[in-house]
């Protein structure tokens, strides 16, 4: 199948082969977007591609068109680590929230695709601005509590970076959610072990995240976030843990830059764009389609 022709809605029956095809397309979008403007954050975007593809193309019930900010009756996704906007924009476009051709405006003047996501330019699919780190977990918990008040039994997802956990607000929110029994929330940490200045354990010392979140009252599961064979069962397990009085935390091991060999596993590609030669090499590795529309 062509990833851009029919993936508008999530379907529980979509196969791993199909998801891999979509993920390859999304990764091609990412490297093209950051190459085109010679800026942006490819590393984390490539690492989190499989998660966002799994959510938007398999797990989440969502309605791209018409976009409804309140999202009552829909599953909601919040991107707290807003710098990985390329993967978010690609997945939204490939899901049908806005035209794929608009990806070409990323980070350019008068674009709805700002460097970091915003509601300010009314881009469908974005429900809060993010970029200044540490705020998305609180917002997602608030949205989850609104769902409870509305008797809306859908789920709220939020993705954070691991370096982001150095922000104090995360731990305020981490304490709040179990205390208030926010059990319609699945939070995901992208544990790629890298941040701008180097490995997270060298820069910030995150330590034993499972023990920390369990001590805060979360149900914690772990998975390889770059293998659908392990990621999909982990998301199914996460869903099975909802509604039990506790929020759910998925600690997802990924490699920054996954899918492009020269970017993988290094913090050096956190916020650097590939040059022309590097782009061609990346696209070769990501199985370029002859008739790609972007």
């Amino acid at each position: 199948m062509s990833a851009s022709s029919s993936p508008a809605e999530a379907t529980a029956t979509r196969s791993i082969t199909e998801l891999k095809q979509i993920a390859a397309q999304v990764r091609r979008d990412i490297v093209r977007m950051v190459h085109a403007v010679n800026s942006g954050h490819p590393g984390g975007s490539l690492g989190c591609t499989d998660l966002l593809v799994a959510l938007y193309f398999k797990f989440m019930k969502h309605t791209p068109e018409p976009f409804d900010m309140n999202g009552v009756g829909q599953d909601l996704f919040f991107l707290s680590n807003g710098h990985i906007s390329p993967v978010f924009y690609s997945v939204l476009a490939r899901s049908g929230y806005f035209p794929v051709s608009e990806l070409a405006t990323f980070r350019k003047l008068d674009s709805r695709l700002q460097g970091h996501p915003t509601t300010h330019e009314h881009l469908p699919g974005v429900r809060v601005a993010s970029g200044s780190l540490g705020q998305g977990l609180s917002v997602a918990i608030g949205a989850a509590q609104a769902k409870k008040l509305n008797n809306d039994n859908r789920t709220v997802y939020v993705l954070m970076g691991d370096g982001e956990l150095e922000e104090g607000q995360i731990w305020e929110a981490a304490m709040y959610a179990p205390h208030h029994k926010v059990d319609n929330l699945i939070a995901v940490v992208d544990r790629n072990g890298q941040q701008i200045d180097g490995p997270t354990e060298k820069v910030g010392g995150l330590g034993d995240l499972r023990a920390k979140f369990e001590a805060f009252g979360w149900q914690v599961i772990e998975a390889d976030g770059n293998q659908f064979e392990t990621l999909l069962p982990a998301l199914e397990e996460a869903q099975s843990l909802l509604g039990q009085g506790k929020p759910v935390m998925l600690l997802m091991d990924t490699q920054m830059g996954f899918g492009v060999d020269y970017m993988m596993g290094s913090h050096k590609w956190h916020g650097v764009a590939p040059n022309d030669e590097q782009l061609e090499k990346a696209l070769q590795q990501l199985e370029v389609e002859q008739n790609s529309d972007y």
Binding site: N70, L137, G142, A143, Q145, N150, Q169, A173, Y176
Partner: peptide, 26 residues
């Protein structure tokens, strides 16, 4: 009481929660 949220001494979290609660029409 069902429409009141005691946040504790965590004002940053409170502002984020409030932003999130608007998503859903609150």
């Amino acid at each position: 009481p069902e429409r009141f949220f005691q946040v504790g001494i965590a004002e940053a979290n409170m502002m984020g929660l409030a932003a999130g609660l608007t998503i859903g029409g609150k």
